[in-house]
Amino acid sequence: MDHLEATKHIYTFLDDELSQKKGLALKKHIDSCSDCQQRIATENKLRSVLKENLLKQKTPFYVKEEIKNEMEKIDRESVIREKYRIPSQLRPIFVSMLGGLIFLGVISGIFFYKWQEATRESTIFPRLAAKHIVFASQENLVDISSSDMEELVTWFKGKVDFPFSVPFYSEELDLLGGRLSELHQKGAVHLFYQWGDCQFSFFTFECATKNFPGAHRKEYNGKEYYIAKYNDQFIILWMSNGLGYALVCDDEEELFEIASQIL
């Protein structure tokens, strides 16, 4: 081995990682090369200085204490966990019970949702009643004040998602105006009428269900009507072509009179 190659292998030689063959060849060269001997001496010295210096660094005493404390904590926790662990023979039973519970939960969730949906429809009556009460107690509630039906129909065009028209006409009813209302998170038409000294509301809204628990179902002229009373307000509701219509008034007799006039 020549000098140049020897220098390349000095680190590996000192690490004692050179193959036996190469190691022997290098040793042979070193024995006869003072330059390499010097290099090895310097390298060895440097290594021992480095090691001595870097080994001085010790762990702060509290680190070990902290680790020991944490280990004890881990043990205490795992003992508690093992104490309350389900034995492996019972695990399949536990898993199937858990599965059953989840299944029951899902099923009852579906039923609850259906029930909610059903009862939500019935909440339309209190809402209609409330809207009418607000109208009857506040004069300037109208969005558009007009007695011209065509003007009102044009005003509502585009404001509600359905083509709006009034399914009845009577000269005895005084139209006061209209307001863009909301039922089931959708735009609804709320019209105000005067009939003698009685004020009533007429609603047109989108309605998908015919399920109205809490209302009396009546048939009149071959059509279905639902009658309900909420907050001292009387409500007549009927459906036609996917739309719901409702009349609301606080006087039962007057309401039926109006209904018999227009329906």
Binding site: T59, M71, E72
Partner: peptide, 20 residues
């Protein structure tokens, strides 16, 4: 657990200076 900790201290924790 205490026995296990002791074992860990003897086998592993003795190297703490090297690791730190």
């Amino acid at each position: 657990k205490k026995k296990q900790r002791k074992e860990f201290e003897e086998i592993a924790l003795v190297h703490i200076d090297s690791l730190y």
